[in-house]
Simulated assay, not measured.
Amino acid sequence: MRVLLQRVSEARVTVEGRVTGKIGPGLLALVCAMPGDRPEDAAKMAARVAKLRIFRDEAGRMNLPVTEAGNAILAVSQFTLAADLRTGNRPGFSRAAPPEEAEARYEDFCAALRDLGITVATGEFAAEMQVALVNDGPVTIWMDSS
């Protein structure tokens, strides 16, 4: 599983003119399931995201996880994180999990975050989405379960 995190002051996802998910301060998590990812992998990645200390404490240092900062997560499925650019100029996506498997792992990831007490807003799986965000910092972190 791959997750690209961006610390945001706000973010939202729109599908066909309607907002499907919106948060204030927190994390935008672009989530990509890879072939063979299991529910346990999604739960492990969610736990890592929840513990990542990238929010400012009273001294202004990146020292708080999303759970202690009281922030939310906007999770958006993003199969293009599996892009293969080794040959040619057109990315290949065969390294992404098939849609049924990917949707299940995305849902597992979101459920695991909620089980940890985090407020989670979402995009809409397999939809054309417009994602708007204000990157805070900027802070962008790449995570890979392998």
Rank of each mutant, 00 (worst) to 15 (best):
A112M: 01
Y106H: 04
G26R: 00
S145E: 10
V8H: 02
E10S: 15
S9N: 05
E103C: 14
L30R: 00
R53Q: 03
C110E: 03
R86S: 13
G117F: 09
A82Q: 10
E40H: 01
L64P: 05
V13E: 03
S94V: 04
A121V: 09
G92E: 09
L28Y: 06
V19G: 07
N89I: 08
I23S: 00
L27D: 02
V66T: 02
E100D: 15
E101R: 07
E101P: 02
L74C: 10
R2H: 13
L113D: 08
A33H: 00
G137I: 09
G36M: 09
P25L: 03
V15R: 06
P39T: 03
N135H: 04
R90H: 05
G60V: 00
A46N: 06
G92W: 07
R48T: 14
A43Q: 09
R7V: 12
D144H: 10
S94W: 05
R2P: 08
G36I: 13
E101M: 10
G92P: 06
A59K: 12
S145F: 02
A112V: 07
G24L: 06
N63D: 14
D108H: 01
L5E: 02
L81S: 00
M62N: 14
Q78W: 11
A96H: 04
C32R: 09
I73Y: 04
